[in-house]
Amino acid sequence: SLEELLKLARHALRHGEEIHVLDRVITDEHEIKRLIEELERLI
Rank of each mutant, 00 (worst) to 15 (best):
S1A: 11
S1P: 09
S1L: 11
S1C: 08
L2Y: 11
L2R: 05
L2D: 02
L2P: 05
L2N: 04
L2F: 08
E3R: 06
E3Q: 07
E3P: 02
E3K: 07
E4R: 10
E4G: 07
E4T: 10
E4L: 12
E4V: 10
E4P: 03
L5K: 04
L5M: 11
L5E: 02
L5S: 02
L5G: 00
L5Y: 06
L6T: 01
K7A: 12
L8Q: 10
L8A: 11
A9I: 12
R10T: 06
R10N: 13
R10H: 13
R10P: 00
R10E: 15
H11Y: 05
H11A: 10
H11N: 11
H11P: 00
A12S: 03
A12L: 04
A12N: 02
L13D: 04
R14C: 05
R14W: 12
R14A: 15
R14F: 14
R14S: 15
R14K: 15
H15G: 06
H15A: 10
H15V: 11
H15P: 01
H15L: 08
H15Q: 09
H15K: 09
G16E: 04
G16Y: 05
G16P: 03
G16S: 07
G16D: 04
E17D: 08
E17H: 14
E17N: 11
E18W: 05
E18C: 08
E18V: 13
I19Q: 01
I19F: 11
I19L: 15
I19A: 04
H20P: 04
H20F: 08
H20N: 09
H20V: 13
H20I: 14
V21C: 05
V21N: 04
V21Y: 15
V21A: 09
L22W: 10
L22P: 06
D23K: 02
D23L: 03
R24A: 07
R24Q: 09
R24I: 09
V25D: 05
V25T: 10
I26P: 02
I26W: 11
I26G: 02
I26H: 04
I26M: 08
T27S: 14
T27Q: 10
T27G: 09
T27E: 07
D28H: 09
D28T: 13
E29H: 13
E29T: 14
E29N: 10
E29V: 14
E29G: 10
E29Q: 13
H30M: 13
H30D: 13
H30S: 12
H30K: 13
H30V: 13
E31V: 08
E31H: 06
E31D: 11
E31Y: 05
I32V: 06
I32P: 00
I32K: 08
I32G: 01
I32E: 00
K33E: 10
K33M: 13
R34M: 14
R34F: 09
R34V: 11
R34L: 15
L35G: 00
L35V: 06
L35A: 03
L35K: 01
I36Q: 00
I36L: 03
I36V: 07
E37P: 01
E37A: 14
E37Y: 13
E37N: 12
E37S: 12
E38C: 06
E38P: 00
E38D: 12
E38Y: 15
L39K: 00
E40C: 03
E40S: 05
E40F: 03
E40D: 05
E40H: 05
R41V: 08
R41G: 07
R41F: 09
L42Y: 07
L42S: 06
L42M: 12
I43W: 03
I43T: 04
I43F: 06
I43M: 06
I43R: 02
